[in-house]
Amino acid sequence: MLKTRLIPCLLMKNGLLVRSEQFSLHQIVGNPVHQVERFNTWAVDELVYLDITRQGEYDMRRDDHKIKDKKTLLEIIEEVSRTCFVPLTFGGGIRTIEDIRTRIAYGADKVAINTQAAAFPEFINEAARIFGSQAIVVSIDVRCHAAGAWEVFVHGGRQPTGLDVIEWAKEAERRGAGEVFLNSIDRDGKGCGYDLPLIEAVSRETTIPVIICGGVGRFEHLVDGVHAGASAVSAANIFHFTEHSTQHAKKVLAKAGVNVRLSAQFRTNSTSRRPGVSRSSTSKPNESRRPASESRCM
């Protein structure tokens, strides 16, 4: 039987991992490449990286190390994918088909699109036609106004769209999205649990997998999300501060009767190797890319 996926969501800002609260407070928690190596040994099922950088600069330098080692987003994708043998989704700042192409060429398996999809819905059709629905995740940032009234926000949760979340999720599916990533702005960093009525409504009205994020403060909240109908459960902050947090999360899910993958520890000792290719057809595009967007979950 298909397992329920546990998907850590990693927020990246200026090349560093951050924890987030209500899409606005961001606290640095680590290095995006080291973190993925940890997760890779812990039987996570998938990883979602969302780039929320405001300037077009990716700096892997830790203040405490005084090492100057600036990386572009694409270099980060490349490094992460070299050690990441689970599906990898990258989101943030995607505006063009070329943005998707380069992320996939550098090692992403899927991309999450948000603001561009809401502004130009036909972007979903085009992206799905070129890369296949399986590579296109439509990310939806949600604010709850009142019971049953959910609005889509874009530009990192700062700009309302007037779109109803359920209608938008259905449209995204119709246009070829392979999955929907629902992120609750109000609950981000609050630890008060998922927006369960939202999950129930979107899962009921769509037939593609629904991934949920925002609000997990205890691993039991993951179980609630599964019972509300989510195909996959995601969370960000909770995974940063506890050792073996993803394994604990899976134990809690399994104990509650959720069918999860409880694989033994996986380790490869070749994490620093370059791919053994004599020639790759994917040449590096030049670095003069436009700055990444300011917002989260673009």
Partner: peptide
Amino acid sequence: NLRSVLNALAALGADARV
């Protein structure tokens, strides 16, 4: 995504050619 396959083959020490 060819890169994923190449990365996995590299981790196994295989010499692959695109």
